[in-house]
Nucleic acid binder design. Structure first.
Lengths: 228, 228
DNA sequence: TTCATACTTCGATCGTAACCGAAGCATTGT
DNA sequence: ACAATGCTTCGGTTACGATCGAAGTATGAA
């Protein structure tokens, strides 16, 4: 009768609008304080506190104390992938929260997903990396090729440093706006970081969208061409 | 900051234990009736009905009316993938539940569905009848061919007698163990009756399963071969 | 027709959880 | 020391939805 893992608890945690808003905001990768998350959820600090406690107890959030503040983040990348996949599903059913506003196109073009690049640009990047033989698609997963490792070194990414982490190097993450995979994992993170470091792009204050400068746009499109 | 699709609605739909149990049951791919799903969810038929209406309105379920029954299935493969991914996530967090005992293989092999043959054998029979040109699939429905009528006479089925009934001769019936169509209608009933009359098979007392004798098994498989 | 089955809708109860005001820690700054 | 900020806990209200009994609808069988 009752089979398998209990998805109801997870669903109920995400099922509250205030909590869903908080989780969506945290998918941006930034650590946010309880006060900021209360604002995101449209609730008072007291209510937010109880919500955050539930999310943490459910294993969706992690918190770290820092002075008077408590910074909340998603527990790990698996949570981010779950939220993204649910967004993709909801988008496909037309469960949109609001009519596509002015911020929507920017969000679809390039945004941050936990700590890596998503949206049209994220999908394009992975497509290009596969086409150039840098990354190989093995079944459902992704693998960095030997040739790819040297190729990335030319871009300024030292894969050796990334391997030291226990986190997987390459991971596929389903994109809710494109409904196709983009690159997650420590390599995905490193690539986005390098774009930001080089000044090609910058994060926006309140949104998940990532804005490319005209020069950064050119460099990105040159570095990750798309055939056809 | 409200960005992107609304995951709270989806989460809330999955967040109720009864609904989660129903969805998990339907992830098996079989179509289930409202009554069966009520049993799965541990609730009464009335409550199940409202839950199913909500799930359908939310785009998670599709239903197919068939006589007095309403067969529910997951709306499409995307729903199945969502449930699967949530199960995977929940399993990773240790949100586990018990695994049930063994299923009933006999019920899956052959059982009675109202008055006709269902299960693996039922699906095989219809497949074979279509392959041999006895029955033609016309759109969603089924039609007996002219050649088929004489073919059935050889088996001992007089179609003329069946036509006198107001009941449709051929009807497609969705199989809940195979999730594919088998043959219903007065012809389906007549075929099963002939198997029982010939002693090829017999009904069991308490179960809906139909037990074929070794000889009946051989005759059935000879009469309804399957290619490939 | 009449009866039985499968399901839906109505109505009402009831439990839970979301919510906020107020008070209670905890940390930092002065 | 005291005040200010950030957050949690407590208490009480409120609102929503899950639940089921009973009545209503639809389909099939006799």
């Amino acid at each position: 009768m009752k089979e398998g893992p209990d998805i109801a608890q997870i669903g109920a945690l995400i099922g509250d609008p205030a909590r869903a808003n908080m989780l969506a905001a945290l998918t941006g990768g930034r650590a946010l304080t309880a006060t900021e998350l209360a604002g995101v959820g449209g609730i008072t600090l007291q209510t937010a506190s109880t919500h955050l406690a539930k999310l943490e107890a459910g294993g969706l959030l992690a918190q770290r104390k820092q002075g008077r503040h408590r910074y909340f983040t998603l527990a790990d990348e698996a949570v981010a992938r779950l939220i993204e996949s649910m967004m993709g599903f909801a988008a496909g059913r037309g469960h949109l929260r609001h009519r596509p506003g002015p911020k929507e196109p920017a969000l679809r073009k390039a945004r941050i997903c936990y700590d890596h690049l998503a949206g049209d640009y994220g999908v394009r990047m992975l497509d290009s990396l596969i086409a150039s033989g840098t990354i190989a698609a093995v079944g459902d997963g992704l693998r960095l090729t030997e040739k790819g490792e040297s190729h990335l070194k030319c871009i300024g990414i030292d894969v050796g440093d990334l391997r030291s982490s226990r986190r997987p190097l390459c991971r596929s993450c389903l994109d809710w706006s494109e409904r196709r995979a983009h690159l997650a994992g420590s390599l995905g993170k490193a690539l986005l970081s390098s774009f930001l470091d080089k000044g090609w792009a910058r994060r926006t204050a309140e949104s998940r969208s990532i804005l490319f400068s005209p020069e950064g746009d050119r460099q990105f499109l040159r570095l990750f061409p798309v055939q056809g």
